[in-house]
Design a binder for these strands. Structure first.
Length: 433
RNA sequence: GCGUUCUUGGUGAAGCGGUUAACACACCUGACUGUGACUCAGGCAUGCAUGGGUUCGAUCCCCAUAGAGCGCCCCA
C-alpha cells in the first residue's frame, strides 16, 4: 500500500466543505479591504529565502526542501510566503504604481521539513497579507485588524491579540546588546537550549518554556524600554489606531518573533482554547522595514502577517464550528424502467438551479429513502412508469412526509415556493429571514 | 534532529502464545418486485501497519522499517 508522504494530508468530506467555505470568506474579506491577490511560484531560487529569512534561523539551515533542477540551479520549495511576494513586488516594479501603498494577499501551500505534530505539517497552507510602501502605523493597525475580523466571521471566540515593538534597527540593536549583557553573567543558570540561543538568537531566550520562571528571566530588559523617540511614537500610534477600531490587545514584551527581519510592530493572535496544545498561536506578523531592501535593494517599508490554515481548522474543531455542505433540494427516486426519464428530470432540475441527486446504485425503495435522508433532501420525487405515463409526479416533502401530486410543468414553481416556505436554516441564502 | 505513546474490517473497538478474531454501529440481501424510523432471517477482517526472528504454533514475545499522536528543538 502506497501511503501519502509523511506530514501531508488529504482533504475530503466535511473538511473539504469547511476549507472551501473559509477560502471564500478570505476572498470576500480581502476584497472588502481592497487588497489584491498575488500568486507566486511554489519554488524559488534558494538564495531568496536565505536573504529573506536570514542564515541563522533554522528554517533555512535545515528545514527547507532544497533541490537542484536539471540546470543545476539551487531551488527551494517556499517555506513561507513573504519572500516570494516581495520578490514579485520588486521584479514587477510595483513600487512605481500610481496608487500606494500596494496591499496584497496570498494563499497557498508552503513546505517545511519538520517533524509533524498537532496542527503542523510538512506541506501546509498559509494565508497572508503584505502591505508595501507605507510607514504609517495605520497600516500596522489595519493588518492586525484583518485576522481579528476573520476570526470573528468564523465564530472563533477567545482569541487574544498580543503586540510588542522591537523598534527600528538602532533600537533593536541596542536592545539586543542589553539582553546579552543581562544574560551573560547568568548563562550557567539557563537550560541547554537557551545557551544555544544565547549565541545564535538571544531574543528567542524570552520564548523559553523551561526558564520562564527564573529570576533572571523576569528581570530581563524589555524591548519597549529601549525604543528611541521615533519608535516609541510609532508604537503609541499603532495602539491609538487599534483602540479607534475597538480591537482589544495586550502588550506582551516577550513577543519577539523568530525571524530577524522584523522592525517596530510585532504581533501574534492566540487561541485560548482548552486543550489546544502547544501550537496555540493562530497567526503572527509585523513590520519589516528593511526586508525589501535586503532582498532587492529598494528601500520600501512593509508590514504583513500570515496564518496557518491547519491550525485554524484545528481551532475551529475544538470550538465545534463546522461549515458543512448545504442540503439537497431534491432527491429523485428512479425505478428499474425509468432510468432515462429520471436522469432527464435530474438534469432539468439542475438546469433550473436546484441542488439535486439521484440513485446510481440500483438501490431498492427503502435504501433510496434512506439515502435521501442522509443527503438531507428537502423533497423526494418518485418517478415510476405511472408518473412518466401521466406526467403527474409524486413529490414528497421529506420533513413533513406530506405527499403531493404535481404536474411536471408545475414542479419548478412548486419547489420554488415550498423551499422558501420550509426553510428554517440560518445560513442559506434564501430570502426567508 | 531528540524523547515518548501508539497502529486489529467502512467506523468504534474487545481479545488471548493454541482450533470459527468478540460485541456494537454502518453497509448489503431477503421477508416487503411503488413509500422510509420497527421487526425477523442471513451476509460482511483467509486476517490484526510492513518485513524479519523466537516458537511445534505469533494479532499477542523480540528486532527493524513505515506511519500516526503528544512533547522538545524550531516556527507562520
Amino acid at each position: 500500500m502506497i501511503q501519502k508522504p509523511k506530514g501531508t494530508y488529504d482533504v475530503y468530506g466535511e473538511k473539504g466543505s469547511t476549507i472551501l467555505y473559509i477560502e471564500n470568506v478570505l476572498r470576500a474579506l480581502m476584497d472588502r479591504y481592497n487588497y489584491e491577490y498575488v500568486r507566486t511560484p511554489h519554488f524559488e531560487s534558494s538564495e531568496l529565502f536565505h536573504r529573506a529569512v536570514g542564515e541563522t534561523t533554522d528554517i533555512v539551515t535545515k528545514e527547507t526542501y532544497d533541490f537542484l533542477d536539471r540546470g543545476e540551479r539551487k531551488m527551494t520549495l517556499r517555506p513561507e510566503g513573504t519572500a516570494g511576494v516581495i520578490r514579485s513586488f520588486i521584479e514587477n516594479k510595483m513600487y512605481a504604481r500610481d496608487i500606494l501603498p500596494v496591499k496584497t494577499w496570498y494563499y497557498g501551500p508552503m513546505y517545511r521539513y519538520e517533524r509533524p505534530q498537532a496542527g503542523r505539517f510538512r506541506e501546509f497552507y498559509q494565508f497572508g497579507v503584505e502591505v508595501f510602501g507605507s510607514e504609517s502605523a495605520m497600516a500596522d493597525a489595519e493588518v492586525i485588524s484583518i485576522p481579528v475580523h476573520l476570526y470573528k466571521i468564523l465564530g472563533l471566540k477567545n482569541v487574544k491579540v498580543k503586540i510588542n515593538s522591537l523598534g527600528d534597527t538602532a533600537s533593536r540593536e541596542k536592545y539586543r546588546e542589553a539582553l546579552i549583557q543581562h544574560f551573560e553573567p547568568h548563562i550557567g543558570e539557563l537550560c541547554g537550549d537557551c545557551k544555544e540561543r544565547f549565541k545564535k538568537n538571544p531574543l528567542r531566550i524570552l520564548d523559553c518554556k523551561i526558564d520562564h520562571d527564573l529570576e533572571v528571566m523576569k528581570s530581563a530588559p524589555k524591548t519597549i524600554d529601549y525604543l528611541n523617540e521615533e519608535s516609541k511614537k510609532h508604537f503609541e500610534e499603532v495602539q491609538k489606531y487599534l483602540k479607534a477600531m475597538n480591537i482589544e490587545y495586550e502588550i506582551n514584551p516577550k513577543i519577539v518573533r523568530g525571524l530577524d527581519y522584523y522592525t517596530h510592530t510585532v504581533f501574534e493572535v492566540e487561541a485560548a482554547v482548552e486543550g489546544f496544545g502547544a501550537q496555540n498561536v493562530l497567526c503572527g506578523g509585523g513590520r519589516y522595514n528593511n526586508l525589501v531592501k535586503n532582498i532587492g535593494d529598494k528601500d520600501v517599508a512593509g508590514v504583513g502577517f500570515a496564518l496557518g490554515m491547519e491550525r485554524l481548522l484545528t481551532a475551529l474543531e475544538y470550538e465545534h464550528i463546522a461549515f458543512g455542505s448545504s442540503a439537497l433540494d431534491v432527491y429523485v427516486v428512479p425505478f428499474e424502467d425509468t432510468k432515462e426519464e429520471a436522469l432527464a428530470l435530474v438534469q432539468f432540475l439542475r438546469l433550473n438551479g436546484f441542488k439535486v441527486d439521484t440513485d446510481y446504485m440500483n438501490k431498492n425503495m427503502k435504501a433510496n429513502f434512506k439515502q435521501a435522508d442522509k443527503m438531507h433532501a428537502s423533497f423526494v420525487v418518485l418517478l415510476g412508469s405511472e408518473e412518466v405515463k401521466t406526467g403527474i409526479l409524486t413529490v414528497k416533502n421529506n420533513h413533513t412526509k406530506e405527499e403531493y401530486k404535481i404536474e411536471k410543468e408545475e414542479l419548478i414553481a412548486f419547489l420554488d415556493e415550498k423551499l422558501v416556505e420550509d426553510c428554517h436554516c440560518e445560513e442559506c441564502e434564501c430570502d426567508n429571514e
